[in-house]
Amino acid sequence: MAAFNLTPFDPSTLILAGIPGLEAAHIWISIPLTMVYIIGLFGHSMILFVVGKEQTLHKPMYLLLCMLALTDIATPIFIVPKALCIFWFNLKGITVGGCLTQMFFLHTSSMMHSAILVTMAFDRYIAICNPLRYTTILTNARIAKLGLVGLMRAVLCTLPLPLLLSRHPFCANRIIPHMFCDHIAVAKVSCGDITVNNMYGLVIAIVVIGLDLTLIVLSYGLIIRAVLKISSKGAHQKALNTCTAHIFVMLTSYPPFLFSTLTHRFGQGIAPHVLIILANLYFLLPPMLNPIIYGIKTKELRDKVGKYTCRSCLPASTDSNLT
């Protein structure tokens, strides 16, 4: 607890503890955290660059992939810089306004991520079950509109979280046992009645994520039914291959979210550092893995990325001869 005394008391300041119980290992934890951040940032930046440069990739599927990349870039930005300030410089103080702002943007990007995954499932459903109408149903303009609807939903659903908390005073013990301003962790250090906050957060998580999961499962149920009707094994395999990357991304996103949400509310017997690590896995692991998954599973994207990376590796004289 002596480390907290390095942050002077300020009634408008909260204190992020980092990972309670693992304070001695903060420096070591910062190493994989930084690597995850850099790998994810590089991978998604590469996807955005390649899709932007290649006219052949200006299609709904890759527009959705760019949207996913933007949310995956944004989410760690709201977590990692402050976490590294805690781990490296012991700068644990954060204003109440800054904490509520971080909470809003963090949960908004998370909900936007889920909306994009639903749209991707719909995209794969149209591509496999109604391929002849794919280009007329899913245009780039329509995908952009769906993305805007997903963003509006995320903002409207997330905005009440900081607004409800801003009505409560905070107790003398302003230490948040977390490395970022997670909603339920901040709510627990307020002195008011947080029943409404707890219920709203839980209902939003269950209803919104439950609805998204239902739509995704429905889409893939229809996809599987359509694939089973295909007689050609080659076409059968090709249809399934177009979905594998999306399925892997969903498996890295939804199970950690559901497990983290439920354990934070009902896992009183679980050690705090375990809860925090679970929350970090949900927010930080998918942004690192998603570009790797799509890079491996999407041949067209893999070929385009390979073209640019190989070109950058060639000597200048060789590259000029090729052109």
Rank of each mutant, 00 (worst) to 15 (best):
M1S: 13
A2T: 14
A2Y: 08
A3K: 02
F4P: 01
P8E: 04
T13W: 14
P20Y: 07
E23Q: 13
I29Y: 05
S30H: 04
P32W: 07
M35P: 05
V36H: 01
Y37P: 02
I39V: 15
I39Q: 13
F42V: 12
H44S: 11
S45G: 15
F49K: 13
F49R: 15
K53M: 14
E54T: 00
Q55W: 01
Q55M: 04
L63R: 10
L64I: 05
L65N: 09
M67E: 11
L68P: 00
L68E: 07
A69F: 00
T71H: 03
P76W: 15
F78E: 06
P81A: 13
K82D: 11
I86T: 07
W88A: 11
F89K: 10
F89N: 13
N90I: 05
I94D: 05
T101K: 07
F105V: 05
L106V: 08
T108G: 03
T108A: 14
M112S: 04
M112H: 09
S114D: 02
I116L: 03
L117I: 02
V118L: 08
T119Y: 04
A121E: 14
D123N: 13
I126H: 14
A127I: 01
C129R: 07
C129D: 08
N130A: 09
L132Y: 09
R133C: 05
R133T: 11
Y134P: 06
T136P: 03
A141V: 00
G147K: 01
L148Q: 08
L148W: 06
V149P: 10
V155A: 15
T158F: 07
T158N: 06
L159N: 09
P162F: 07
L163N: 12
S166F: 08
S166T: 12
P169E: 15
C171H: 02
M179P: 00
M179H: 12
H183V: 04
H183W: 13
I184T: 14
A187K: 00
K188F: 08
V189D: 10
S190E: 09
G192D: 12
V196Y: 04
G201K: 03
L202T: 06
A205D: 15
G210K: 01
G210C: 03
T214W: 13
I216N: 00
Y220K: 08
I224F: 13
L228E: 12
L228A: 06
K229M: 14
S232E: 10
K233T: 08
G234T: 13
G234N: 12
N241Q: 09
T242V: 05
T244W: 12
F248V: 12
F248L: 11
T252E: 09
S253D: 09
Y254C: 01
F259G: 08
L262W: 06
T263N: 15
H264F: 15
R265M: 12
F266P: 01
Q268W: 10
L275Y: 06
I277T: 09
L278C: 15
F283K: 01
L285N: 11
M288Q: 02
N290C: 12
I293P: 00
K297E: 14
E300D: 14
R302K: 11
K304V: 00
V305I: 15
Y308R: 09
T309G: 02
C310V: 03
R311H: 11
L314P: 04
A316W: 06
N321M: 12
N321R: 05
T323D: 11
